[in-house]
Design a binder for these strands. Sequence first.
DNA 1: GAGCTAGCTGTACTAAGTACGGTCGGGCAA
DNA 2: TTGCCCGACCGTACTTAGTACAGCTAGCTC
Lengths: 245, 245
Amino acid sequence: MTTTERRVGRAPLTRERVLLAAMHIADADGIGTLTMRSLADTLAVKPMAIYHHMSNKEQILDGIVDLVFAEIVQPPIDAPWRAALASRAASVREVLGRHPWTIGLMESRRAPGPATLRHHETVIALLRNAGFTHAAIAHAIAFLDAYVYGFALQEVSLPFEGPDDVPELAEEILAQMPADEYPNFVEFAREHVLQPGYDFGNEFDIGLGMVLDGIAGLEGAAPSITRSGRSPDRTSKRTNTSPDR
Amino acid sequence: MTTTERRVGRAPLTRERVLLAAMHIADADGIGTLTMRSLADTLAVKPMAIYHHMSNKEQILDGIVDLVFAEIVQPPIDAPWRAALASRAASVREVLGRHPWTIGLMESRRAPGPATLRHHETVIALLRNAGFTHAAIAHAIAFLDAYVYGFALQEVSLPFEGPDDVPELAEEILAQMPADEYPNFVEFAREHVLQPGYDFGNEFDIGLGMVLDGIAGLEGAAPSITRSGRSPDRTSKRTNTSPDR
DNA sequence: GAGCTAGCTGTACTAAGTACGGTCGGGCAA
DNA sequence: TTGCCCGACCGTACTTAGTACAGCTAGCTC
């Protein structure tokens, strides 16, 4: 009876439903609250039911990381490389910002999922189309990814959320710090980082510009068309003209 | 008696001894095997003894991350900025390579320790001495750190250790991958990454050169003195002269 | 209609963090 | 010297988490 109701009253568990639920928990309450029990609860099953669809928790973590990568918007592979890489970088950052636990999981994931592979595939195709050599592609990808992931890592490690509640927390930290031990640090924080207009997030586009300039200097790169100094993000997606070399 | 022996026969627990032991465990067997019990065992005490010196495991993790940062060699603050940043970046990477679990912990650490602060202090002083404005310093640090941490993150996420056992594992991965779904990826891997001479680690210096070039282009930068290119192979690095905008 | 099976449950074991309340020896005041 | 206190450490036990193992049950097949 109860069983019958259960069986007919709800969709059966699937790998996909499990992963989506896991992702929602991580998004809502942090990766720390994602346990087999909490996951089972939100799925309205008992913990062991999950093991009929996923072999262990590791696999679930692999799965949700790949789900996150699947959210990254893929630029068309024939777009101008600079605009394409910029929009992809912005998308990666935005997606990692939406699922901040991902960056912490990446270190321990060794098995790239299909979305992750697809993601690399796109970038490689893009640069190949733009005339980059294999060597230049390797340099460009290592460089760009290091920057984007590193920036995301820094963002999630910030002790505050958004630029608004910086002052309180930062002041508090500075207050209990021996000011004369770190004079330059304190001065820098007071005079610049804690000033009203400062938002660490803005550093992203500045660094990204430098990254793209660097990539443009690699052999085989087409001349950069879109100079796109600082804010290539949040709008300029897919200009989709012809290949620019 | 036993107690007496214990008391006199060994040094008493201290915060420092606890942290060093924790670090050794993490280095030797991975962060996953660092538990309060394993830690207590190597210190030859019972688990609860540790709680008289550290309030919880979080604090231990904070502590060992700061220990790692303390290993980073600080360049003299009056050195030429480019050489100084390059050597610091190399040191960070080397230290993170020696303690690969650190990068995974960084994401969850919110409280910078003294070594971490000292580290920032040095870099700020360095750039200040070189005539960088506050804004340029903010850009430079965000950029450089993002790159260095991101690169380290990529290195620890690689599914293999060192360039030697790449072939087996990579071949294995490629083999079970639908080759026609990721044609560019597969080609790129086969033709470049899996070629004998390739070592992902070499990408570090190439990217670092681009980072430093970018920083040189920031306002207020002193003219770059030491070019500091170390592996001029396989790339045409950019010319490094004066700020270019 | 008997049995197989997929999908789920119940129970329980193990590992880990840590609360709580000892115990014990050495230092110090009377 | 004596008695007491306190700091360092230990024992026990509770809680939470991952997951092994052995059912149970509804529906499908023969």
